[in-house]
Amino acid sequence: MLKTIWAIWERDAAGMQSQALGLAEALFTTEGFGLPQGFEIALRAPQKWLPMHPAFASLSALTPDTLAPMQGQPWPDLLIASGRKAAFAALAIKKASGGKTRTVLTQDPRSNPRNWDLLVVPEHDRVRGPNVLLTHGALHRVTQFKLDSAAQSFRDEFAQIPSPRVAVLVGGSNRNYTLDEDWMHDFVAQLRNMVQRSGCGILATVSRRTGEAETNILRGGLASLPAVLWDGKGPNPYFGFLGLADIIVVTCESISMISEACSTGKPVLVARLPGRSRRFELFYDSLLRRGLIQWFDGRLMQWENTRLDDMDHIARDIRDRFGWA
């Protein structure tokens, strides 16, 4: 009988959704697992403010719309959770299952790691323990099959964009880094200079975190160039851009986006934003030492790269730890 997998993540958290579903899909491609189900998680008060501890974990902490899709189904054999609220929900589901459900958390819960069966965390995080599996970057949903399929789907639509093609992945401000209008003006000037010097084409995309003003600056700067910009309208060509690109430029504030870019095996140029984070600097240093990234300074740089991809070995490690190999 196939083992069942649920992936859960915090509501409106695309990066966490990518981590939870990416790991679930990696396990699904191995023998013995069924098609994963995915659920967004939101918590009621006061549990959403309580400490991360099994004593406070209860299904009553989940909002009704969160709990409703799960009700009437047997608890899964494996639950993969990403984000604090999802970690809390994983404790509640494990308790409700009578311990039947094995739990895997994809981020440091900043709590006792033994509350979950396994933690999968990047090496730049500090958490360590006998049930902690380490990755080089963030888990994700990018696979070579998805890249090839998406590239084929969008090839005709973007055939007018000249080679070499540069995928430009733009995020937004967070608590560590600032992406504002001044930075975007400078970034657009670098992109224009790169196109004029190299004759490259640009496949650009913004994220939910990109401000409207910053998006408009980017749109205006690319208007006279051989470029396209996806601004959230219409089918998302993200995988297509990654698949069609020869080089990738990505802003520095998202470990998830950088990890996805590095998983393609293509040259990755990281655009620095104002700000600093010790965790992020450790992550950058690891990739720089391995030759996987270079800092973007407005020049088009190409080199023979290798792929950063933790998905296969993490899926194998989980199977081994639970005796499912």
Rank of each mutant, 00 (worst) to 15 (best):
K3P: 00
W9I: 04
W9D: 01
D12A: 07
D12V: 09
A13K: 07
A13M: 11
G22R: 06
A24H: 00
A24T: 00
A24C: 02
E25G: 00
F28K: 05
T29G: 06
F33N: 00
P36K: 01
I41L: 03
A42K: 13
A42C: 08
A45Q: 11
A45K: 12
A45M: 09
P46V: 15
H53S: 10
A57V: 13
A61Y: 06
L62Y: 09
D65A: 15
L67M: 03
G72D: 02
P76D: 05
D77S: 01
R84T: 02
A86Q: 00
F88S: 04
L91C: 08
K94A: 09
A96T: 11
T103P: 07
V104T: 04
Q107S: 04
D108M: 08
D108I: 10
S111Y: 11
S111L: 06
S111P: 09
P122Y: 11
D125E: 14
R128L: 08
G129A: 01
P130V: 09
N131C: 02
T135A: 06
H136K: 11
L139I: 14
V142C: 04
D148I: 09
S149T: 15
A150L: 06
A151H: 00
R155C: 05
R155P: 02
A159E: 09
A159V: 15
P162N: 02
S163W: 14
V166A: 02
V166Q: 05
V166G: 01
V166P: 01
A167D: 00
V168W: 12
V170C: 11
R175W: 12
T178E: 15
E181W: 10
E181D: 10
E181S: 14
F187A: 04
N193M: 11
V195I: 12
S198F: 10
S198Q: 05
I202F: 13
S207T: 13
R209W: 11
A213H: 15
E214A: 08
R219K: 14
G220Q: 11
A223Q: 13
S224P: 07
L229Q: 12
W230N: 10
W230D: 10
K233D: 11
G234P: 15
G234M: 14
P235N: 11
Y238P: 13
F239D: 03
F241T: 01
G243I: 03
L244T: 04
V249E: 01
V250Q: 12
T251R: 15
E253G: 07
S254G: 07
C262E: 00
T264W: 08
T264A: 05
T264V: 15
K266G: 04
K266E: 01
K266Y: 03
V268P: 03
V268Y: 10
L269P: 02
R279L: 12
R279Y: 14
E281K: 13
D285R: 15
D285I: 08
L287Q: 02
R289Q: 12
R289I: 05
F296I: 12
F296W: 15
F296S: 04
M301E: 12
W303Q: 10
L308S: 07
D309E: 14
D310M: 08
I314C: 00
R316V: 12
I318Q: 05
D320L: 15
R321P: 03
G323N: 01
W324N: 06
